[in-house]
Amino acid sequence: MSDSAILSGVTFVYLLSFLLYLVRMVRGKEFWGSAASWIARIGFLLHSAALLLRWKSSYDLGIGHAPLANFYESLIFFAWAVLLLYLIIEWKTCSRSLGVFVIPVAFLLLAFASISPGVNDRIQPLIPALQSNWLTVHVLTCFLGYASFAMAFALGIMYLLKGKGQDGGKEAGAFFRLIPAANAIEELLYQSVVLGFVLLSLGIMTGSVWAQYAWGSYWSWDPKETWSLITWIVYAVMLHARSVRGWRGKRMAVMALVGFASVLFTYLGVNYLDSLHSYF
């Protein structure tokens, strides 16, 4: 069975997990949440196995490289990183409420990778510019960073929804009752942004080192580079507003959404502009 066939299957596993998380939120019964968690964990294991299989297959083809070398591979790694971080958070906080906001992100990423006709899922050999160990470190740090920002995004949505739910008065229902306390969401959101910010900084730095070796210039104002800087600035402003101006709560939640929009444009939108990063 090929790795991309497994990943198509995993897409539906995540969809199922999301639906179960949703049922939990609506019905308020932890049975559904437990089922959703187990399905998500099984999906994650299959997902990991598919990544390893893909890695091995590339060696069987004689063009061995880590599965982090084209757009398809970046999508499936992004989704994997989202699941990894989510499952860690679920385990650490003992709360399943974030699942309904995060799992769809992973599902959409995988669905896009599997369905979009523009995404080539074949294992491709590395062209000369990509033949560098910095490629692996760069993609790894960037996408773990993106996944952290995806967490912050989901937490931001959860925070804003909670605010709306409270405005609704007594008729809040199970959905809103199951959303954790505002300050718990807020702290987790901040931690996610911090982790993402450090990883994005590392990602930009490793990318610069690689560019210095490959193209003789650590920074060329290439659109993707520039947009990663813009994203970095958005989160830098967010962190400064928090520590110096004392921004909390709703403002931080909104900033997490703005930041993630910038991440998505850096990742996907830039491809509509000319770029050195045409492989991703």
Partner: peptide, 17 residues
């Protein structure tokens, strides 16, 4: 600081568009 960073970001956006 925020104004400078925002303007730099804005300039960067213009440069890519």
């Amino acid at each position: 600081a925020v104004a400078l960073l925002s303007l730099i970001a804005l300039g960067a956006v213009l440069g890519t568009v």
